[in-house]
Amino acid sequence: MTTPIPLFDPMVPAFARISRVDRELPDVFTWHLAAPSGAGFSFAPGQFNMLYAFGAGEVPISISGDPNRPEELVHTIRAVGAVTRAMQGLRKGDTIGVRGPFGSAWPLAEARDQDLLFVAGGLGVAPLRPAILHALAARSLYRRVIVLAGFRSPADFIFRKELERWRSRFDVTVEVTVDRADTSFRGTVAVVPALIAEVELDPAATVALLCGPEVMMRFAVRELERRGVPHERIHVSMERSMKCGVGFCGHCQYGPTFVCKDGPVYRFDRIERLFYVREI
């Protein structure tokens, strides 16, 4: 057998320095990483990196930055496990291991001259942000741009200022909802799929990009079906355990696919068979 000689080892990270930390929520933070040697981080919206914290471990994290600003790499992270909690303790000037970018991307080229419908649940707004930023920067490439985002409570908004800024534009529809709130909140209290039910849609010309907890995406898909959006026009971003990001470790298998290379972004009709199977 002629074994190919790899040009680089995909399991060995490069190191980047944290240039800024934004605190989004008590347990959510955004890192701005400076590209080493000014090389730039080229990526497609929807892709992720494997981020490694010295001695603590490595986790897959979606890229949440602006694809038009490759000089910095942006990740928005929730501290939920041992590795991400260690990451929360890092400060400006600390270094982080980076491997990537890996995985599939939102179908922004195919969505040209169509209506773009973004549906985000909680931190799911982070993997959608690069696509939203692209759409707003290249606004003339798309027809309507609609952003529907749901959060648990008014205290859980992520990218609140940015959502408010987008909402102030005349060429974007932004609707935000929370699952629950006390009486002091005067915005919409509902789950995200309820926003889909009410938004003005041209189902035959809409490309829907969904990211959030699986249960939220399940109900969102159901609502999109009800509104007549065909399955091949719906795209979902899936999450699974990952140890390598390049198809070696086996952890992220989702039916016959690997979320790390066939996903995380899937056209819904291609995984429909798996989407409703419990524990698959």
């Binding site: 074994t3 190919p4 790899p6 680089f8 080892d9 995909p10 399991m11 390049v246 198809g247 070696f248």
Partner: peptide, 20 residues
């Protein structure tokens, strides 16, 4: 296993060096 570790887009460097 060759298909898994050296047959795809990414090549597992350790596997490749042991397999050669």
């Amino acid at each position: 296993q060759d298909r898994v570790f050296v047959g795809g887009h990414h090549v597992d460097a350790d596997y490749a060096s042991r397999r050669r």
